[in-house]
Design a protein around this nucleic acid. Structure first.
Lengths: 226, 226
DNA sequence: GTACGCCCTATCCGTTTGGATGTGACGATC
DNA sequence: GATCGTCACATCCAAACGGATAGGGCGTAC
């Protein structure tokens, strides 16, 4: 989409050599101010700021020239999830709209990008990278920190919150469940009696919140177990 | 990593206002030449080219000034998978090394990025985006087209060899199975009687080669269904 | 020592599954 | 019109499952 957006959707690029008009909307004044200062210092950007979605909308509507890039805080007043993003994206004076957030998950980021956002900026980003990203996005590209997108991918697999809760036997039994084995088969594999397996099965259901063996298997699978 | 690489690993940035030295290594002369031309036209880049890994290595070794960015074709002579990438990355005169490929999969791209490559450029990228990406990477950021990374994620879900074999009802029932529902629940959801569900369950077992509902659910999951 | 947690086994009981088999309706194919 | 595949419903039955309950052994922690 990165490529296709710029190529197919024909995002207007700022005339080269001209200042880029950026709108930063974030309810944290400190972030607004420091970001403004840092960006203005770094490059030829013209910055406006707003403290909430309504303020941002008013500025975009009343702008005499379109903004090359609008940065929206994901969790500021009026955003209502990704609704605020979509609202601004529909406006003619906002060429590119990106999300910035300190808390949003990868899912949110992906959804935003899929919805056509110019990018996603976690607040953990160093200021320098942020400036790079802004320039990158203003040029019509789509940006998101790869490490953020990747790291979150493995976060589910990284720590097995429920794996810790299970005893060795329960884990072994759970593994059998993920293989679609019957209690009898599991019992044979582990050289135990079937009633024992049933016990482990029942207790591990409770621990991981499953109602039956299929759910248990799916939960294990989703946790990246086995 | 994008952020952390530039911040923590201290990639040297080209002195601002100075030309960026780029090395393009690709065995396709056509691509080399057109790319060279396009990039030279677009921005203040100084381009060298090589036709294979040995040529690239020689240029990097003998360079009087380090390259800001080295672009390596994934499938050119001498590369041997990601080994060539690692070789060049270890060399002092190559500040940033990126992969470029027309064939490589997302797995390769991810591995390269995880190994510290500056980026991954599929050859499907429009020339303009490519220049943007090059500038972006030369600034110390890590680049990969988000659509490429995302699209390939779903490629497993794209073709469902077994999904074709299942009728609509069977698919609906299978979906219920993956959610750990009982036949009765599925029947209620689909507004059918339980015996009907049992019929679909049995036939879909045969079609996908499952012995019980848990196996059916796991198979569906592995195929990326639902 | 006592208590606790994990592990193993067992029995009982009601529900769910898996399988076989049959009926019938509908649409597409031949 | 006959045939085939899909869908729907039904009955019967054996097996497996899920839950409750109740033992005993065994190690660690208090």
């Amino acid at each position: 989409m990165l490529s296709s957006i710029s190529a197919l959707m024909g995002f207007a690029e700022p005339t080269s050599g001209q200042v880029m008009r950026i709108l930063i909307a974030d309810d944290h004044e400190l972030l607004r101010d420091t970001l403004n200062l840092y960006i203005s210092n770094e490059a030829d950007f013209e910055i406006d700021t707003a403290a909430d979605l309504d303020g941002a909308r008013a500025l975009v509507e009343g702008a005499e020239a379109p903004y090359d890039l609008v940065l929206l805080d994901f969790s500021m007043p009026g955003m209502n999830g990704l609704e605020g993003l979509r609202t601004i994206m529909e406006m003619a004076n906002a060429r590119r709209v990106a999300l910035i957030s300190g808390t949003a998950t990868r899912e949110v980021a992906e959804e935003a990008l899929a919805a056509g956002a110019a990018g996603f900026l976690p607040k953990t980003l160093p200021a320098k990278s942020l400036v790079n990203a802004i320039r990158f996005m203003a040029m019509g590209e789509q940006y998101a920190p790869l490490d953020f997108m990747r790291a979150a991918e493995e976060e589910a697999a990284a720590s097995h919150p429920l794996a810790e809760a299970l005893s060795l036997r329960e884990m072994q039994v759970l593994e059998g469940l993920t293989q679609g084995k019957s209690n009898k088969e599991i019992a044979r594999d582990l050289d135990l009696r079937e009633p024992t397996i049933k016990l482990h099965v029942k207790t591990l259901y409770r621990k991981i919140g499953a109602a039956n063996r299929t759910q248990a298997a799916m939960i294990a699978k989703e946790q990246g177990l086995f």
